[in-house]
Nucleic acid binder design. Structure first.
Lengths: 140, 140
DNA sequence: GTTAGTGCAAACCATTTGCAGAACG
DNA sequence: CGTTCTGCAAATGGTTTGCACTAAC
């Protein structure tokens, strides 16, 4: 599980410490590769570090997101999900009926983001976006 | 407040009844014109119909959204917001720092939606989208 | 009169907080 | 050692559910 330890120096650089709890959490996010809810992270990371608690997961995810190691997004019904920032090169398109989801390449939105930035004066519009539609299967 | 009663025939056409509670809820959504959380709707509509309760607000909003009278979206931290579907001709851009928000005209996204539909096979991609960035003020 | 809608109370679940003790560096 | 981080326990807040009663049509 040394794969998670590679983040240690970066964490230190931000004044954060590398604890076994954080190793487990980063490990989960690193190996699943996708976006996970705090509860999902908790359940999976607990297998590696059984004494892990939910408050720790929430605090860690929030902290890591604030320091830009993770990216926070909202998928569907008000649930917060996180994924490793280094994995974030895509967005999501979710079926309103069956909740099937596919990835949208970030390149498809880059031009739009640029346009929005120059039109609005806002900067750093690069957040994760979730679109909703009806997938081919559910179109009957 | 007859303005809300104009929806009565449309509701009935969908098998829904027009109650004073629904009048109050529609009234609030109609006159504020923007998106509101269930709690906000509850507090404002209660002034017009004091015996209104939260469960009724949640059930009504969900029902009306399902029947396409309202549009449900997610703004910021996992909070569900609703607005009259007839008002929905825009999207939102919210500042990550101060939460200032501006509207994005739907026209700006129409081309993207078309592209996504033909690329993915998904249909009816027209949902409300919320973007995040840093507003001019917070750029210091 | 039927059926949909409401109020009430309580359950539920994700998330947050305070604080004392543990542990990283 | 000092400061950060964690665990515990409990509170919080938004949202949902079951059920008996009311009201719309």
């Amino acid at each position: 599980m040394t794969c998670s330890l590679k983040y240690a120096p970066q964490l230190r650089a931000q004044g954060l410490r590398m604890t076994p709890q954080r190793v487990a959490i980063l490990h989960v996010l690193h190996h699943t590769g996708g976006h996970l809810s705090p509860t999902q992270v908790y359940e999976m990371a607990r297998e590696e570090h059984p004494s892990l608690t939910e408050p720790t997961v929430y605090r860690t995810l929030e902290e890591l997101a604030e320091k830009k190691f993770l990216l926070a997004a909202h998928v569907g019904n008000g649930k917060m999900v996180y994924e490793l920032a280094e994995n974030h090169n895509h967005h999501h398109l979710i079926c309103r009926e069956c909740h099937a989801e596919i990835q949208i390449d970030h390149a498809a939105l880059e031009k739009l983001f640029k346009e929005l930035e120059s039109a609005s004066g806002y900067r750093s519009i690069d957040s994760h976006v979730t679109f909703f539609g009806i997938c081919p299967d559910c179109q009957k």
